[in-house]
Nucleic acid binder design. Sequence first.
DNA 1: GGTTGATCTAGAGCGCGCTCTAGTTCCTAA
DNA 2: TTAGGAACTAGAGCGCGCTCTAGATCAACC
Lengths: 145, 145
Amino acid sequence: MPPLPSSHPAPTSLTIGETARRTGLSVHALRFYEREGLLVGPVERTAGGRRRYAEADVDWLRICVKLRESGMPLADLKRFAELVRRGPGNEAERLELLDAHRHRVEAQIRALEECRSLIAWKVGVYADHVARGKAEGLWDPTGPR
Amino acid sequence: MPPLPSSHPAPTSLTIGETARRTGLSVHALRFYEREGLLVGPVERTAGGRRRYAEADVDWLRICVKLRESGMPLADLKRFAELVRRGPGNEAERLELLDAHRHRVEAQIRALEECRSLIAWKVGVYADHVARGKAEGLWDPTGPR
DNA sequence: GGTTGATCTAGAGCGCGCTCTAGTTCCTAA
DNA sequence: TTAGGAACTAGAGCGCGCTCTAGATCAACC
């Protein structure tokens, strides 16, 4: 995937606050992810001990955010990070992990679409009743509630 | 054991275990939902104090399951149950609640589809590398990890 | 009557994914 | 030089949605 257009000209060294803003994660979450071993490499530090994130870290974090959004558990994200950290030679494993997740995402989409149909139908029923100003039938146990 | 479903000859009275089987919820969850006020009506009891669910309860619970699956929080489900319990006259409120949820579901579907694209792309990259038996480029920080 | 299994209540516990606190240190700007 | 904000660590806390436990009762069957 092409790198996302950045409004900033690649400073190559970001504070945790800037990284938070760019990834949408909180600074707390960033430190938490690091502690949990969810990052691929160790984060650089300044002489004073402050974290310095590289662009590559932001790229990885953005992928993490997407995977999390789609419901990948932190444990899987950690496994993936470990595989990447270990370097070449385990591409098949990474593939398997991602592909399994893709299947889960697709199942989730199908489930949501089904829910959407149910909701759309019920919304239609209510809209109808509201428009007609009458609600007869809404209490029929075999009908919509 | 009461007659099995399929050709619903109106059992009109299900144990909590049967209701669990029919809705996919656990018996624990069923009691929990009841305590939380997520049901529309009070559940009947036998002389001995056991719950007896009606078909209408199962219908409602199945709707609950769908709404939960699509991410509706229990608090909203409770609000909805309260509106239904109060009877006719608040259809507009019910409509609003459902419609808001529908919008959330649609946003969620769009987000998931975006994630799916990302994953599919990465799966493609890895499949390619695995197929070629080589992994050059995987460590380029500007490339896929 | 006795055994077995389903159900009952009240309430504690848990897994996940952060979020927040306390107390301290670092850095920048005036 | 000093004030203020941002960042640091370790660890506690939390919101959600169940899940499980303990100890008792109920119900069906041999």
